[in-house]
């Protein structure tokens, strides 16, 4: 990481620039203003975790299939989340805005998976 130049170095540098007879490119008097992207409603809107909970009835092969179908994941990713549900009792599948999280919960529950949306901090 670079450190800020001490004030004394700045003073020496400025003097040498004024003493120089050769034309030089002057430093801009004002620094460029970096525009911040305006915050949209999406930035402020609450987000939700889509969580799938474990149960003893849904088959592992079925849960993997449903994750692949709904999220478009490959088998490896779908199996990772399925095993997390199985071994840890739940898996956070995605974090989305309210509307999209609700959509995913509806889709997962159409397949009878126990999925909910929980507020993200």
């Amino acid at each position: 990481m670079r450190r800020a130049a001490p004030a004394v170095w700045q003073a020496v540098r400025n003097r040498s620039l004024t003493a120089n007879t050769m034309p030089s490119i002057a430093e801009p008097a004002t620094q460029p203003v970096i525009k911040q992207r305006p915050r949209s409603d999406d930035d402020l809107a609450p987000t939700f975790y889509v969580v799938c909970w474990n149960d003893p009835v849904n088959l592992m092969v079925y849960v993997t299939h449903v994750f692949m179908k709904i999220f478009g994941w490959n088998k490896q990713k779908a199996e990772k989340h399925m095993l997390e549900v199985h071994e840890k009792g739940k898996s956070v599948l995605t974090r989305e805005g309210a509307e999209k999280a609700e959509f995913y919960v509806h889709e997962l529950q159409k397949y009878k998976l126990h999925a909910t949306m929980e507020p993200a901090e």
Partner: peptide, 21 residues
């Protein structure tokens, strides 16, 4: 729809979910 949320919005989402199901 949620295990932790009991806001009016969550109750409305619950209702919509069950109607849809």
């Amino acid at each position: 729809i949620s295990r932790t949320e009991a806001t009016p919005e969550a109750l409305e989402r619950d209702k919509l979910l069950n109607e849809s199901l």
